[in-house]
Design a binder for these strands. Structure first.
Length: 431
RNA sequence: GGGGAGAUACUCAAGCGGCCAACGAGGACAGACUGUAAAUCUGUUGUUUUUUAACUUCGCAGGUUCGAAUCCUGCUCUCCCCA
């Protein structure tokens, strides 16, 4: 499914115009000028799904592959057992082995969707547990640990920041484990560069240093800037929590909505990072967007592309339909025309309650429907207040306080969409 | 251990015997406006079939009083000062 590599464009150049280059070791550009490169990025199995934040690194690999290079995605079966101290102010709790393996498997499946496993520069997914499981402690500290000084390791920010508050030996040794990964991939798979977020710079350079000291190897490191919103807040988080790639955690609809709500100030940057569109195309979309920002062409375009890539084009279609019904000028007619499956999908996650059919057929007073029948609103007083505010809609049309719901209001003979204001939905299932 | 201050609705914070369902601010929700944005303006924010009405609420339990969030007693908790 991922697009084939296009004409051999230079990866570093590609990252530069996408604003995705934060730092790289000297000699990195020469490395790419010599032909296809094999490189890797590691993923930490802290959860059983990748979050949208991880998409930055997924996209780094995607751009890497599209410029003709061979990507390796590493899932951290071994490193996950230890815990990366980077950016953490306190010791991490270790995950149980079962949990870890579960997370690993789930992340691996997700990663498989994004890379191309065919052709000359086919992607690979590896698990560092595979080469650590055989290795004994003595072997490791003798063959690997001997090459780096504690002084060197202590100079890393991830360690330095913890000297005051304390840090276990386990976390201290994390960089060595990750460094050895790089060595192993370099030695056995010809991997010449490790990439990652800028917070990984320290860990990555431990690897390049290790390779230099162990076998005088010369490899590169490259990091991408941490993506954040123009207002300085963290990307990928909402009041509702993290945005996940797993549809069970974050529905495709919510995923789509999250992207659609991107601020104008961020959209240009996001398009560069998250889409595979070329420079000219992005610039022309931006120009068009600036002509009529309220149309949010850029947001729609990016949300569509990413939703389709992460989920599927069917999921995208549903998300777009759902958005149209919820936010567009969808009329009562459009809503009434929806089939049952779409309704359930659109209103998945919307609070629901069952209402007896006989009550509705007899004509159900609106206040009663809002409170006793459904529990949508807390009290009769609140319901009356809301009605007075003209904020209650049934099936997208406003209703007066003296309204009575009847079977005419049923969608597909069994649903009534209640709404308070624009954003609060409630689905009454009548049966 | 001694002394002092306090506990009020989602949060902060007035009230110190009747006019208190309780000022005000923030938040939240809604309406107008709008781009499913921001800002702004307006309204609502204890329950009860709209009410000049009733009921439940001001840490907990009692008491004084025609009447208490407001006074008294005990309890619980929080904070501050001196040891």
């Amino acid at each position: 499914m991922p697009p084939k590599a296009n004409a051999m464009k230079n990866f570093v150049e590609e990252l530069k115009w996408r604003n995705m280059l934060h730092d790289m070791t000297p000699g990195t550009e020469e490395l790419f000028s010599q032909g296809p490169v094999s490189g890797y990025i590691g993923f930490d199995p802290t959860a059983d799904s990748l979050g949208i934040g991880n998409m930055v690194q997924v996209m780094t690999l995607t751009h890497f592959q599209r410029t003709g290079n061979k990507p390796i995605a590493l899932v951290g079966g071994a490193t996950g057992m230890v815990g990366d101290p980077s950016g953490k102010s306190a010791e991490r709790n270790l995950l149980g082995v079962d949990q870890l393996n579960h997370n690993l498997e789930c992340q691996k499946k997700q990663l498989e969707k994004f890379l191309d496993f065919e052709g000359a520069n086919a992607a690979q997914i590896v698990n560092n547990y595979d080469w650590f499981k055989e290795m004994g402690f003595l072997e490791f500290i003798r063959d690997v640990g001997k090459h780096l000084s504690v002084n060197y390791m202590m100079a890393k920010d991830s360690v330095k920041n913890r000297l005051e508050t304390g840090m276990s030996f386990t976390e201290f040794s994390y960089q060595l484990i990750q460094g050895y990964d790089f060595y192993y991939l370099w030695k056995h798979m010809g991997c010449n560069i490790q990439m990652g977020g800028s917070d990984q710079w320290g860990n990555i350079t431990t690897g390049t240093e290790l390779i230099r000291r162990m076998e005088s190897g010369n490899v590169s490191a490259l990091t991408t800037p941490l993506i954040k919103k123009a207002d300085g807040t963290k990307f990928g988080k909402t009041e509702g929590g993290n945005i996940w790639l797993d549809p069970m955690r974050t529905s495709p609809y919510k995923f789509y909505q999250f992207l659609l709500n991107t601020a104008d100030a961020d959209i240009g940057n996001y398009m560069r990072v998250f889409s595979t569109l070329g420079r000219e195309e992005i610039e022309s979309i931006e120009a068009e967007h600036n002509e009529a920002p309220h149309m949010r062409l850029a947001q729609k375009r990016m949300a569509a592309e990413l939703t389709a890539r992460v989920h599927s084009s069917q999921d995208l279609k549903k998300a777009e339909d759902a958005s149209e019904v919820l936010f567009g000028r969808a009329t009562k007619e459009a809503l009434m025309a929806l089939d049952e499956a779409t309704i359930l999908d659109v209103f998945e996650g919307v609070p629901q309650a069952k209402v007896s059919k006989s009550a509705v057929e007899a004509g159900c007073d609106i206040v009663n429907l809002l409170t006793e029948q459904t529990g949508f609103l807390a009290s009769n007083g609140e319901a009356r207040r809301a009605l007075k505010e003209n904020s209650i809609s049934i099936n997208k049309s406003k209703v007066a306080p003296d309204y009575s719901a009847t079977s005419n209001d049923l969608i597909d003979g069994k649903y009534i969409l209640l709404q308070r204001g624009k954003k609060n939905y409630f689905l009454a299932i009548v049966e």
